[in-house]
Amino acid sequence: MSRTRITMDLRKAIILINLLLLITPVSASYAGDKPLQTVLYDKHQGALEFSLGDSRYSGELEHNNSYQVNFDIELPAGSSVRVAKAYVYWVWSKKGLEGIYPKFNASLVHSGTVLPLQGGQMYTDTKGFVSRYDFFSGANAFDLSEEISESGTYSISLVNSAEDGSTFCVQGIGLLLVYEGSELPVIEYWVNEGCDMLYAEYGIDPEMATTTAYFEGDINSENIATARLITVSPSGGYSSGTGARNRLYFNEKTGSIPVIGDIIQILFGGGKSWKNIYQTNETVQVALDERQVGTYLEPVENFVSIQDNGDYLLATNAILVLEYKEPENKEPENPGEGS
Protein backbone atom coordinates (compact mmCIF):
# COMPACT_ATOMS: atom_id res chain seq x y z
CA MET A 1 0.00 0.00 0.00
CA SER A 2 1.40 3.38 -0.98
CA ARG A 3 2.28 6.05 1.54
CA THR A 4 -0.17 8.40 -0.17
CA ARG A 5 -3.02 5.90 0.29
CA ILE A 6 -2.19 5.48 3.99
CA THR A 7 -2.19 9.27 4.46
CA MET A 8 -5.58 9.61 2.75
CA ASP A 9 -7.09 6.81 4.85
CA LEU A 10 -5.71 8.44 8.00
CA ARG A 11 -7.28 11.75 7.04
CA LYS A 12 -10.62 10.05 6.40
CA ALA A 13 -10.44 8.34 9.80
CA ILE A 14 -9.73 11.65 11.52
CA ILE A 15 -12.66 13.31 9.74
CA LEU A 16 -14.95 10.41 10.74
CA ILE A 17 -13.88 10.63 14.38
CA ASN A 18 -14.51 14.38 14.42
CA LEU A 19 -17.96 13.88 12.92
CA LEU A 20 -18.80 11.26 15.54
CA LEU A 21 -17.73 13.65 18.28
CA LEU A 22 -20.23 16.17 16.98
CA ILE A 23 -23.12 13.72 17.39
CA THR A 24 -24.78 14.18 20.77
CA PRO A 25 -26.84 11.41 22.37
CA VAL A 26 -30.58 11.71 22.89
CA SER A 27 -30.87 14.02 25.88
CA ALA A 28 -34.03 12.57 27.43
CA SER A 29 -33.15 10.46 30.45
CA TYR A 30 -33.20 10.27 34.24
CA ALA A 31 -29.78 11.96 34.27
CA GLY A 32 -29.19 15.69 34.61
CA ASP A 33 -28.98 16.30 30.88
CA LYS A 34 -31.33 19.27 30.44
CA PRO A 35 -29.92 22.02 32.68
CA LEU A 36 -32.12 25.03 33.38
CA GLN A 37 -31.17 28.07 31.31
CA THR A 38 -31.20 31.76 32.23
CA VAL A 39 -34.11 33.38 30.38
CA LEU A 40 -34.21 36.64 32.31
CA TYR A 41 -31.57 38.81 33.96
CA ASP A 42 -31.98 42.39 35.16
CA LYS A 43 -31.06 44.94 37.82
CA HIS A 44 -33.34 47.77 38.95
CA GLN A 45 -35.35 49.09 41.89
CA GLY A 46 -38.00 46.51 42.60
CA ALA A 47 -39.06 43.25 44.24
CA LEU A 48 -39.53 39.63 43.18
CA GLU A 49 -41.84 36.90 44.42
CA PHE A 50 -42.86 33.39 43.38
CA SER A 51 -46.11 31.70 44.37
CA LEU A 52 -47.94 28.43 43.77
CA GLY A 53 -51.31 29.96 44.71
CA ASP A 54 -53.74 27.25 45.76
CA SER A 55 -52.17 24.63 43.49
CA ARG A 56 -53.12 21.00 44.05
CA TYR A 57 -52.81 17.77 42.07
CA SER A 58 -55.44 17.47 39.33
CA GLY A 59 -55.59 13.75 38.80
CA GLU A 60 -56.06 12.51 35.23
CA LEU A 61 -57.59 15.14 32.96
CA GLU A 62 -59.60 13.74 30.06
CA HIS A 63 -60.96 15.66 27.06
CA ASN A 64 -62.76 18.87 28.16
CA ASN A 65 -61.76 18.40 31.82
CA SER A 66 -60.64 21.69 33.38
CA TYR A 67 -58.18 22.77 36.06
CA GLN A 68 -57.67 26.13 37.80
CA VAL A 69 -55.30 27.79 40.27
CA ASN A 70 -56.03 31.10 42.01
CA PHE A 71 -53.51 33.78 43.01
CA ASP A 72 -54.06 36.75 45.33
CA ILE A 73 -51.75 39.53 44.13
CA GLU A 74 -50.90 42.64 46.16
CA LEU A 75 -48.56 45.08 44.44
CA PRO A 76 -46.10 46.89 46.73
CA ALA A 77 -47.08 50.53 47.29
CA GLY A 78 -46.11 52.77 44.40
CA SER A 79 -44.96 49.87 42.21
CA SER A 80 -45.96 48.37 38.88
CA VAL A 81 -45.55 44.90 37.37
CA ARG A 82 -42.42 44.65 35.26
CA VAL A 83 -42.47 40.87 34.60
CA ALA A 84 -45.15 38.23 35.11
CA LYS A 85 -44.69 34.59 34.07
CA ALA A 86 -46.89 31.57 34.67
CA TYR A 87 -45.62 27.99 34.75
CA VAL A 88 -47.91 24.99 34.22
CA TYR A 89 -46.33 21.80 35.62
CA TRP A 90 -47.72 18.60 34.06
CA VAL A 91 -46.93 14.87 34.14
CA TRP A 92 -48.16 11.52 32.78
CA SER A 93 -49.03 12.91 29.36
CA LYS A 94 -50.06 9.89 27.32
CA LYS A 95 -52.35 8.30 24.80
CA GLY A 96 -52.91 4.76 25.93
CA LEU A 97 -49.40 3.50 26.66
CA GLU A 98 -47.67 6.02 24.39
CA GLY A 99 -46.03 9.16 25.75
CA ILE A 100 -47.13 12.31 23.90
CA TYR A 101 -47.20 16.08 24.40
CA PRO A 102 -50.34 17.42 26.09
CA LYS A 103 -52.83 19.64 24.31
CA PHE A 104 -54.66 22.22 26.39
CA ASN A 105 -56.16 25.68 26.17
CA ALA A 106 -54.97 28.04 28.92
CA SER A 107 -56.62 31.29 30.06
CA LEU A 108 -56.07 34.11 32.54
CA VAL A 109 -59.21 35.10 34.47
CA HIS A 110 -59.50 38.43 36.33
CA SER A 111 -62.52 40.57 37.28
CA GLY A 112 -64.83 38.59 35.02
CA THR A 113 -62.54 38.83 32.00
CA VAL A 114 -61.20 35.66 30.39
CA LEU A 115 -58.05 36.11 28.31
CA PRO A 116 -56.77 33.15 26.25
CA LEU A 117 -53.03 32.56 26.61
CA GLN A 118 -51.25 32.12 23.31
CA GLY A 119 -47.84 30.69 22.47
CA GLY A 120 -45.63 30.04 25.45
CA GLN A 121 -42.59 27.84 25.84
CA MET A 122 -42.82 24.08 26.46
CA TYR A 123 -40.02 22.27 28.32
CA THR A 124 -40.17 18.46 28.43
CA ASP A 125 -38.26 15.39 29.57
CA THR A 126 -38.81 11.62 29.76
CA LYS A 127 -37.07 8.64 31.33
CA GLY A 128 -35.38 8.08 27.98
CA PHE A 129 -35.47 4.31 27.53
CA VAL A 130 -37.94 1.92 25.98
CA SER A 131 -40.67 1.21 28.48
CA ARG A 132 -44.41 0.70 28.62
CA TYR A 133 -44.63 3.77 30.83
CA ASP A 134 -42.26 6.27 29.21
CA PHE A 135 -44.78 9.08 29.57
CA PHE A 136 -43.88 12.75 29.10
CA SER A 137 -43.48 15.36 31.84
CA GLY A 138 -42.84 19.04 31.51
CA ALA A 139 -43.55 22.70 32.18
CA ASN A 140 -45.19 25.32 29.98
CA ALA A 141 -44.16 28.95 30.52
CA PHE A 142 -46.44 31.86 29.59
CA ASP A 143 -45.53 35.56 29.58
CA LEU A 144 -48.24 37.57 31.37
CA SER A 145 -46.27 40.81 31.71
CA GLU A 146 -48.80 42.75 29.65
CA GLU A 147 -51.81 41.14 31.31
CA ILE A 148 -51.26 41.65 35.06
CA SER A 149 -51.16 45.31 36.06
CA GLU A 150 -53.06 45.70 39.33
CA SER A 151 -53.73 44.05 42.66
CA GLY A 152 -56.50 41.48 42.91
CA THR A 153 -57.34 37.82 42.42
CA TYR A 154 -56.12 36.23 39.20
CA SER A 155 -56.86 32.69 38.09
CA ILE A 156 -55.06 30.57 35.54
CA SER A 157 -57.26 27.86 34.07
CA LEU A 158 -56.77 25.22 31.42
CA VAL A 159 -58.83 22.64 29.59
CA ASN A 160 -57.68 19.41 27.96
CA SER A 161 -58.38 20.14 24.29
CA ALA A 162 -57.16 16.82 22.85
CA GLU A 163 -59.90 14.94 21.01
CA ASP A 164 -57.86 11.77 20.49
CA GLY A 165 -58.36 10.31 23.96
CA SER A 166 -54.99 11.47 25.33
CA THR A 167 -54.77 12.53 28.98
CA PHE A 168 -52.35 14.24 31.36
CA CYS A 169 -52.14 15.37 34.98
CA VAL A 170 -51.34 18.84 36.32
CA GLN A 171 -49.25 19.04 39.47
CA GLY A 172 -49.69 22.77 39.92
CA ILE A 173 -49.11 26.23 38.47
CA GLY A 174 -46.46 28.73 39.53
CA LEU A 175 -46.53 32.50 39.13
CA LEU A 176 -43.41 34.68 39.00
CA LEU A 177 -43.90 38.41 39.60
CA VAL A 178 -41.23 41.10 39.34
CA TYR A 179 -42.19 44.61 40.45
CA GLU A 180 -40.50 47.93 39.85
CA GLY A 181 -40.84 51.13 41.86
CA SER A 182 -38.77 54.13 42.93
CA GLU A 183 -39.42 53.43 46.62
CA LEU A 184 -38.16 49.84 46.42
CA PRO A 185 -34.55 48.68 46.93
CA VAL A 186 -32.25 47.83 44.04
CA ILE A 187 -32.44 44.14 43.15
CA GLU A 188 -30.48 42.00 40.72
CA TYR A 189 -31.88 38.67 39.60
CA TRP A 190 -31.37 35.66 37.38
CA VAL A 191 -34.39 33.57 36.31
CA ASN A 192 -33.57 30.05 35.07
CA GLU A 193 -36.25 27.71 33.76
CA GLY A 194 -36.69 24.40 31.95
CA CYS A 195 -37.45 20.78 32.85
CA ASP A 196 -34.93 18.15 33.89
CA MET A 197 -36.22 14.77 35.09
CA LEU A 198 -33.93 13.27 37.75
CA TYR A 199 -34.02 9.76 39.19
CA ALA A 200 -31.10 7.78 40.61
CA GLU A 201 -32.31 4.38 39.40
CA TYR A 202 -31.89 2.06 36.38
CA GLY A 203 -28.14 2.58 36.14
CA ILE A 204 -28.25 6.30 36.98
CA ASP A 205 -26.34 7.13 40.18
CA PRO A 206 -26.92 10.32 42.25
CA GLU A 207 -23.93 12.05 40.67
CA MET A 208 -25.49 11.51 37.24
CA ALA A 209 -28.98 12.43 38.52
CA THR A 210 -27.80 15.98 39.20
CA THR A 211 -28.65 19.11 37.25
CA THR A 212 -26.81 22.43 37.56
CA ALA A 213 -27.97 25.97 36.74
CA TYR A 214 -25.59 28.92 36.51
CA PHE A 215 -26.05 32.57 37.47
CA GLU A 216 -23.38 34.14 35.31
CA GLY A 217 -21.77 37.47 36.02
CA ASP A 218 -19.76 39.38 38.62
CA ILE A 219 -21.24 40.63 41.90
CA ASN A 220 -20.00 42.78 44.76
CA SER A 221 -21.03 40.77 47.82
CA GLU A 222 -20.01 43.56 50.22
CA ASN A 223 -22.87 45.75 48.98
CA ILE A 224 -25.56 43.06 49.19
CA ALA A 225 -28.15 43.13 51.97
CA THR A 226 -29.80 39.77 51.22
CA ALA A 227 -29.52 36.97 48.67
CA ARG A 228 -32.42 34.55 48.09
CA LEU A 229 -32.34 31.30 46.18
CA ILE A 230 -35.71 30.06 44.92
CA THR A 231 -36.04 26.58 43.41
CA VAL A 232 -39.09 24.64 42.25
CA SER A 233 -39.32 20.85 42.03
CA PRO A 234 -42.53 19.08 40.95
CA SER A 235 -42.69 15.60 42.57
CA GLY A 236 -39.72 16.45 44.81
CA GLY A 237 -40.00 14.66 48.16
CA TYR A 238 -43.07 12.67 47.21
CA SER A 239 -41.31 9.29 47.36
CA SER A 240 -40.97 7.67 50.77
CA GLY A 241 -37.72 6.36 52.18
CA THR A 242 -34.89 7.05 54.57
CA GLY A 243 -31.67 9.00 54.13
CA ALA A 244 -31.03 11.92 51.79
CA ARG A 245 -33.62 11.45 49.04
CA ASN A 246 -32.79 14.80 47.43
CA ARG A 247 -30.15 17.48 47.90
CA LEU A 248 -29.68 21.13 47.02
CA TYR A 249 -26.18 22.52 46.49
CA PHE A 250 -25.26 26.18 46.21
CA ASN A 251 -21.74 26.96 45.02
CA GLU A 252 -20.58 23.52 46.13
CA LYS A 253 -19.40 20.64 43.98
CA THR A 254 -21.58 17.58 44.40
CA GLY A 255 -18.63 15.19 44.32
CA SER A 256 -16.88 16.61 47.39
CA ILE A 257 -16.28 14.37 50.43
CA PRO A 258 -18.89 15.49 53.02
CA VAL A 259 -16.63 15.67 56.08
CA ILE A 260 -13.79 17.45 54.29
CA GLY A 261 -16.33 19.73 52.60
CA ASP A 262 -17.75 20.75 55.98
CA ILE A 263 -14.27 21.52 57.33
CA ILE A 264 -13.43 23.65 54.29
CA GLN A 265 -16.74 25.50 54.70
CA ILE A 266 -15.99 26.29 58.37
CA LEU A 267 -12.41 27.42 57.75
CA PHE A 268 -12.63 29.19 54.42
CA GLY A 269 -16.31 29.72 53.63
CA GLY A 270 -17.64 28.67 50.25
CA GLY A 271 -20.68 26.66 49.23
CA LYS A 272 -23.36 24.81 51.14
CA SER A 273 -25.63 21.80 50.67
CA TRP A 274 -28.95 20.82 52.21
CA LYS A 275 -30.72 17.45 52.18
CA ASN A 276 -34.40 16.55 51.87
CA ILE A 277 -35.49 20.13 51.30
CA TYR A 278 -38.28 19.19 48.88
CA GLN A 279 -41.47 17.81 50.42
CA THR A 280 -44.72 17.06 48.60
CA ASN A 281 -47.75 14.84 49.16
CA GLU A 282 -50.79 13.45 47.33
CA THR A 283 -52.49 16.86 47.31
CA VAL A 284 -49.58 19.31 46.88
CA GLN A 285 -47.18 17.87 44.33
CA VAL A 286 -44.97 20.88 43.57
CA ALA A 287 -42.21 21.70 46.06
CA LEU A 288 -41.21 25.37 46.37
CA ASP A 289 -38.06 26.13 48.36
CA GLU A 290 -36.71 29.58 49.23
CA ARG A 291 -33.63 30.17 51.37
CA GLN A 292 -31.05 32.81 52.20
CA VAL A 293 -27.67 32.17 50.57
CA GLY A 294 -25.84 35.45 51.15
CA THR A 295 -23.20 33.71 53.27
CA TYR A 296 -22.28 31.44 50.37
CA LEU A 297 -22.11 33.94 47.50
CA GLU A 298 -19.09 34.01 45.23
CA PRO A 299 -17.87 37.15 43.39
CA VAL A 300 -18.34 35.42 40.03
CA GLU A 301 -20.16 32.47 38.43
CA ASN A 302 -22.55 31.40 41.19
CA PHE A 303 -24.43 28.14 40.59
CA VAL A 304 -27.00 25.78 42.07
CA SER A 305 -27.27 22.00 41.73
CA ILE A 306 -30.27 19.78 42.43
CA GLN A 307 -29.64 16.08 43.03
CA ASP A 308 -31.91 13.05 43.24
CA ASN A 309 -31.07 9.99 45.31
CA GLY A 310 -33.98 7.66 44.58
CA ASP A 311 -36.66 10.30 45.14
CA TYR A 312 -37.69 11.00 41.49
CA LEU A 313 -38.25 14.67 40.81
CA LEU A 314 -38.32 17.39 38.18
CA ALA A 315 -36.15 20.52 38.33
CA THR A 316 -38.02 23.39 36.64
CA ASN A 317 -37.07 26.75 38.17
CA ALA A 318 -33.97 28.25 39.80
CA ILE A 319 -33.95 31.95 40.68
CA LEU A 320 -31.26 34.00 42.43
CA VAL A 321 -32.35 37.40 43.81
CA LEU A 322 -29.89 39.91 45.29
CA GLU A 323 -31.10 42.93 47.23
CA TYR A 324 -28.60 45.77 47.58
CA LYS A 325 -27.96 48.01 50.55
CA GLU A 326 -28.90 51.68 50.54
CA PRO A 327 -25.93 53.84 49.46
CA GLU A 328 -24.30 55.34 52.59
CA ASN A 329 -24.03 58.75 50.94
CA LYS A 330 -27.69 58.85 49.83
CA GLU A 331 -29.14 62.31 50.45
CA PRO A 332 -32.36 62.62 52.48
CA GLU A 333 -35.52 63.24 50.47
CA ASN A 334 -36.26 66.59 52.22
CA PRO A 335 -32.96 68.07 53.39
CA GLY A 336 -33.28 70.96 55.85
CA GLU A 337 -31.86 74.42 55.31
CA GLY A 338 -28.13 74.71 55.64
CA SER A 339 -27.55 70.99 55.13
Rank of each mutant, 00 (worst) to 15 (best):
residue 35 P to N: 09
residue 240 S to T: 11
residue 324 Y to V: 05
residue 81 V to P: 00
residue 166 S to N: 03
residue 58 S to V: 01
residue 286 V to I: 07
residue 162 A to S: 14
residue 272 K to C: 03
residue 105 N to V: 02
residue 176 L to H: 06
residue 169 C to Q: 12
residue 34 K to C: 01
residue 339 S to W: 13
residue 46 G to H: 09
residue 133 Y to F: 09
residue 277 I to C: 12
residue 181 G to W: 04
residue 311 D to Q: 11
residue 191 V to P: 00
residue 134 D to F: 04
residue 24 T to V: 02
residue 111 S to H: 10
residue 324 Y to K: 13
residue 7 T to G: 04
residue 5 R to K: 14
residue 326 E to M: 10
residue 306 I to L: 14
residue 149 S to P: 00
residue 7 T to P: 00
residue 261 G to K: 06
residue 131 S to G: 04
residue 127 K to L: 11
residue 279 Q to D: 12
residue 334 N to I: 05
residue 201 E to T: 10
residue 263 I to V: 14
residue 142 F to I: 01
residue 2 S to T: 14
residue 123 Y to L: 02
residue 322 L to A: 08
residue 125 D to M: 06
residue 118 Q to H: 07
residue 202 Y to F: 12
residue 96 G to I: 01
residue 204 I to H: 09
residue 184 L to N: 07
residue 264 I to N: 08
residue 186 V to L: 13
residue 53 G to T: 07
residue 191 V to Y: 15
residue 271 G to A: 09
residue 197 M to Q: 09
residue 238 Y to W: 14
residue 153 T to I: 08
residue 300 V to M: 05
residue 165 G to S: 07
residue 231 T to F: 02
residue 252 E to L: 15
residue 133 Y to A: 11
residue 8 M to K: 15
residue 122 M to Q: 07
residue 36 L to F: 04
residue 225 A to E: 14
residue 317 N to L: 14
residue 209 A to L: 03
residue 103 K to N: 03
residue 74 E to N: 13
residue 175 L to K: 11
residue 318 A to Y: 01
residue 269 G to C: 07
residue 163 E to N: 09
residue 267 L to F: 13
residue 84 A to D: 03
residue 164 D to S: 07
residue 213 A to C: 07
residue 287 A to W: 03
residue 206 P to Y: 05
residue 172 G to C: 07
residue 173 I to C: 04
residue 94 K to A: 12
residue 326 E to K: 12
residue 105 N to H: 09
residue 325 K to C: 09
residue 119 G to K: 10
residue 53 G to N: 03
residue 122 M to G: 01
residue 241 G to E: 04
residue 113 T to S: 14
residue 94 K to H: 11
residue 85 K to F: 06
residue 169 C to P: 00
residue 261 G to W: 01
residue 26 V to E: 08
